[in-house]
Computed example of a mutant assay.
Amino acid sequence: MPAALALGLVPFLLALAACGGDERDYTVPTSLCGTPVDSGLLEPLLPAGKEIGQETGFSGQEGPKQMCTVRVDGKAWLLTHGEWREGGYTALDAVRDRRGRGGEHAVDGGKIAYWDQGAATVVPCRSEKWKAQTFSVVVESVYRDGRKGDSDALKAFVESYGKAVAERLPCA
């Protein structure tokens, strides 16, 4: 009987050990590169892992392009990209500029656009300095191990994140 019990436990212990890789040992951040976020909306976009880190970047001569890269266990997992834009620039324009391969969709009256690995929104924000009327915000899953992104989670996050970004912008 003990041998049968031990044999019965082997599959259970193997399954339990396999689940260990599906745990999140880090705390989901409440900000991305200084911008407050709803960690509940961010959580479904992040994988299991041991460590999380963030890197801020800026570039561009026609206005600062603000970037934030979120890494889990050293792999770039989520990228945010913000850029000053002219009037009339749409969320679908932002997705097409980032992606440019087709498969893009607009929702919520065009306020949000998405594809299978990312989503965008555009917030009104006049800037005399950058000769801009809007600011585009794109959130992209950049490392997915061949898995399709969660479009609903991306749309919900980009809507909330776009509002948080807008509150921090120096709009005229």
Rank of each mutant, 00 (worst) to 15 (best):
A3R: 13
L5R: 11
L7K: 11
G8P: 01
L9V: 10
V10K: 02
L13C: 05
L14K: 03
A15S: 13
A15N: 13
A15G: 11
A15W: 10
L16H: 02
A18N: 02
D22V: 11
E23P: 06
R24G: 02
T27P: 00
V28Q: 00
P29D: 07
P29A: 04
P29T: 00
T30W: 01
L32H: 01
C33S: 07
G34Y: 13
V37D: 00
D38H: 07
G40Y: 01
L41W: 01
L41F: 09
L42C: 00
E43S: 00
E43A: 00
P44Y: 07
P44V: 05
L46I: 00
P47K: 05
A48S: 15
G49E: 01
G49K: 02
K50D: 15
K50Y: 07
E51N: 14
I52D: 03
G53T: 13
G53M: 04
Q54T: 00
E55Y: 01
G57P: 02
G57M: 06
F58C: 03
Q61H: 11
Q61D: 12
E62N: 11
G63P: 06
P64A: 14
P64Q: 12
K65N: 06
Q66D: 05
M67R: 09
M67S: 07
C68N: 01
D73N: 09
G74N: 09
W77E: 00
L78N: 03
L78H: 08
L78C: 03
T80W: 02
G82H: 05
E83H: 08
R85K: 15
R85E: 07
R85Q: 11
G87L: 09
G88W: 05
Y89A: 13
T90Q: 12
T90S: 12
T90A: 14
D93P: 06
D93A: 01
A94W: 14
V95M: 15
V95Q: 00
R96K: 13
R99G: 09
G100A: 11
R101A: 05
G103V: 08
E104N: 15
E104K: 10
V107D: 04
D108Q: 15
G109F: 12
G109I: 10
K111S: 11
I112E: 02
Y114M: 12
W115C: 02
W115S: 08
Q117L: 09
Q117P: 11
T121Q: 10
T121V: 12
T121P: 04
V122R: 05
V123K: 06
P124Q: 05
R126C: 09
E128I: 04
E128K: 10
K129G: 08
K129V: 07
K131Y: 13
K131S: 08
K131Q: 05
F135G: 12
F135Y: 12
S136Q: 03
V137C: 05
V137N: 04
R144M: 13
G146M: 14
G146N: 05
R147D: 10
D150L: 13
D150W: 07
S151A: 15
L154I: 07
L154C: 08
L154D: 06
K155A: 04
K155R: 15
K155V: 14
E159I: 01
E159S: 08
E159A: 15
G162D: 13
G162F: 01
K163F: 00
K163L: 14
K163N: 11
A164F: 11
A164K: 08
V165I: 15
V165Q: 02
V165W: 04
E167Y: 06
R168F: 10
R168S: 14
A172L: 09
